[in-house]
Nucleic acid binder design. Structure first.
Length: 300
DNA sequence: AACCAGGAGGAAT
DNA sequence: ATTCCTCATGGT
């Protein structure tokens, strides 16, 4: 079997990352097992199934199908798990906040799990607008199982997210039948067109400052401030992004910092000033704090 | 049975 | 420049 070994940085916990990937939801784009995660990648346009496990100071990546393109696979995993980040400065900021300091130990080694593909990140954030996450994951699964690429391995199905060229050619009715709202169907198809026609690409945004990138994204119908920040945080790893308008974020800040359910913009900005250049990580850890609560409630 | 979900756009103020 | 309304539907 083809194996790749990838060294991991300090302040890295594979189990914490796995825990977040699993949470309580049914994600169709990876499968979490006891001590590993499986995911189908597109490497050189070829589907490649990998399984990642943790050793002492390395990740072991088993290439189950497809070619063993070491550099590309390592590049993907590094982006996915944000392996090149030094978390010490973030933990120093957290430690200074009495209400959040517990996160340094409780979530130690948790990395901002990315969505390296920008098109996928944008579609996912549009799907997730305003609806509960269980339903959002259901919609993503329907879309992916119908229009994505499927590979079966040892009796289980693994998927690639649908390509923009496919989504661009759909009709509103086809998506409505999958219980997308008319609006979301239009948004997804229009964004698919901007990608398939090369009007927008991740490479393009990488050349932009974060403010410029947000401006460019918000100009597209269906992408508001929340979606732009979410996509830039998850796909381009712009750490200064804050998902303003995010109900989950507000709930976490309400529980941990006593902010109102609908906090003022100015109060949010004041809070995030304490986490400059690590805003996205702060948001991500606040989301993590919500997941803990869900789990506790469910186990009762 | 209301009311809320990891919002956004467009109309009405 | 704000506030209000609608969208679709599952979960609680």
């Amino acid at each position: 079997m083809n194996q790749i070994f990838l060294p991991v940085p300090p302040q890295f916990s594979f189990q914490e990352c796995l825990w977040f990937l699993d949470r309580n939801y049914d994600d169709c784009l990876h499968e979490v097992r006891e001590n590993s995660v499986l995911k189908l990648l597109s490497i050189h346009e070829k589907p490649t199934l990998i399984e990642i496990k943790a050793l002492d100071n390395h990740l072991q990546i088993d290439v189950l199908t497809g070619e063993c393109a070491k550099d590309e696979i390592c590049h993907f995993v590094t982006e996915w798990f944000d392996l090149e980040r030094d978390l010490m400065p973030f933990y120093q900021l957290l430690a200074k906040d009495d209400d959040l300091a517990y996160m340094v130990t409780d979530y130690h080694g948790l990395r901002l799990l990315g969505i390296p593909d920008l098109f996928e990140a944008l579609c996912w954030s549009i799907i997730g607008q305003q609806i509960n996450l269980s339903f959002a994951y259901k919609l993503k699964r329907r879309l992916t199982e119908t229009y994505g690429y499927k590979q079966t391995y040892e009796g289980k199905d693994f998927y690639l997210f649908p390509k923009p060229e496919i989504i661009a050619k759909l009709t509103v009715e086809e998506l409505r039948n999958m219980q997308f709202s008319t609006r979301k169907a239009e948004y997804l198809m229009e964004i698919a067109r901007t990608f398939s026609e090369k009007i927008l690409s991740k490479t393009m945004l990488e050349g932009f400052s974060t403010a410029e990138a947000i401006k460019a994204l918000v100009a597209i119908r269906g992408i508001g401030e929340w979606t732009a920040n979410y996509a830039l945080m998850k796909s381009l790893k712009r750490l200064e992004c804050v998902t303003y308008g995010d109900v989950g974020l507000y709930n976490a800040l309400n529980a941990l910092k006593g902010l109102p359910k609908k906090p003022l913009r100015a109060d949010l900005e004041t809070f995030f000033k304490g986490f400059e250049r690590w805003e996205a990580y702060t948001v991500f850890y606040l989301w993590r704090s919500l997941a803990v609560k869900n789990k506790a409630i469910q186990s009762i």
